[in-house]
Simulated scan of single mutants.
Amino acid sequence: MTREAGRPLRADAQRNRDKILSVAVRMFADEGLNVHFERIAKEAGVGTGTLYRNFPTREVLIEAAYRNELAKLCDAAPELLATMPPYEALRAWMDRFIDYASAKLGMADALRALVESGVNPYAQSHEMMLAALASLLEAGVRAGVIRSDISAADMFAALTGIALTSGKPEEREQAERLLDLTMDGLSIHHR
Score class of each variant (00 low, 15 high):
Q124G: 08
G6S: 04
A139K: 02
R91W: 07
N16Y: 05
P8T: 12
L80A: 09
A123E: 05
L80T: 04
F37W: 02
A64F: 00
T48H: 02
Y122E: 08
T165N: 15
E176V: 15
I20Y: 00
R96H: 13
I188D: 06
M1A: 11
L164Y: 13
H36G: 03
Y52M: 02
G167V: 14
A163Q: 11
K168P: 12
R3C: 07
M107D: 03
L136P: 11
V115F: 06
T160E: 12
L90P: 05
L133E: 01
C74W: 02
A44C: 01
R96E: 09
A123T: 08
V25C: 14
D12V: 15
F156I: 14
A76M: 09
Y66S: 11
G161L: 13
F28V: 01
L73F: 03
P86G: 08
P8S: 14
A89C: 12
D95I: 12
E138H: 10
T2F: 06
R53N: 00
A82K: 04
E88Q: 07
A65F: 03
A131G: 10
R177F: 07
E31S: 12
R67Q: 05
Q174G: 13
M183R: 10
D99K: 11
R10P: 13
M94N: 11
F156R: 13
E138P: 06
N68M: 07
L70Q: 06
G118Y: 03
T182C: 15
L159Q: 03
R53G: 00
A13H: 05
E88L: 06
T2K: 06
L9P: 06
Q14V: 10
A44S: 03
R17Y: 02
V119K: 00
A157K: 08
R7Q: 10
D75R: 15
M94H: 05
L51F: 00
G45K: 03
K72L: 10
K42A: 02
P78G: 12
V141M: 01
R39K: 09
Y52L: 02
K104W: 02
E59K: 00
G32D: 02
L178D: 11
A132L: 02
N16E: 12
D18N: 13
A82N: 04
L179W: 02
E116M: 09
N34C: 08
A131M: 07
R10W: 08
R3T: 12
H190E: 12
A103P: 00
M128Y: 05
V141G: 01
G32I: 06
A82P: 01
Y100R: 08
M94A: 11
L133H: 01
A77M: 04
R53W: 00
V23P: 00
H189R: 15
